[in-house]
Amino acid sequence: MSKVLSPKEEFDAKPWAGKLRKYDILKEGTIALVVVALLVTSLAFIFGSPDEKSLTFKGWAISNSDNFYATTVQELAGTSGTATYGRPYNTNGDGLNVGPLFLQKWAGVTQRINAANDFVIEPLMNQVQSPEVKAALSQWSTATETQRTKWATTYDDAITKVEGKLSAVPNGDYGPVPALANGLTEMAKAGALDAALLSQGGFFQTDSTKQILFFGDGAYLDDAGTAANLQGGTWGMMNETGRYPGQAWLWLYSFWYQIPPFTNEDSHPIGANADVYIMVIMGLMSLGLIAMPLIPGIRSLPMRIPIHRGIWRSYYQSEGIKRRKR
């Protein structure tokens, strides 16, 4: 059974039977294109566009070698952000959840990463190394998993205890870990790690996941993000490098990261799972935008707040149409 339409609804749906005005759609389109082309060309000439050079492992290892070294040890110990991340990289963490929904966990491991092997051991093995590093690689590869973890975590703990000051780390039984970390640091300083991480022994590669994750485990990328005012807590999602407009259309997404409980990582369950809650909120809000004409209250706002009187002012005036009573 079809819905009975009110006279006004019928009027809105029918083809317009009132006065017409001339309208040249092709001319309008052409003028719009020319105006926008001129505007864009002018803006491009005057302001250009941002292009901050990408960071490299070489830059990291040279500018903050202690941090690079300590991050390498964390990768070997399995204590880095990537090593403990969980899905989609490994099963070493449960990830975030919304109530009983563990969406991250359920999606599974689709981009498997073994931080110790992929970030440290494989790149070292794919390069010509000094006898010391070769011996360390041999000692590492023949040791049991338990022994490797013991060496690396003992060393990681010792570095953490002296707050990353490598010269203050006491002697101990760290096995081949110092030699491996030193080997990777030297490799990175020489500029060989950037390519080695990407290729992983192959020729054609287009996946930069490993480099990005390794970068994020250390302080280099984070410091650069802070310096460029790109951190999430400062509306970073919608900011751009330099003095350029960024993705302003992400303002609502960024907004949630500025207010409690999303700003407090220790607050359960929302703050600790802020990323997934915000994704769900934004998903629902996007659906709300798409289905807005169905939402009671919001759909009647245009009739209640007479902004349309301004939009159609000349028509209303010429026809002497007063505001309708609702």
């Binding site: 975030l96 999606a107 981009q111 799972n273 990323d275 997934v276 994704m279 769900v280 998903g283």
Partner: peptide, 11 residues
């Protein structure tokens, strides 16, 4: 992190 947390990052 946002995409991974919602399971979208897996794909």
């Amino acid at each position: 992190d946002g995409f991974n947390s919602a399971g979208i990052g897996a794909f």
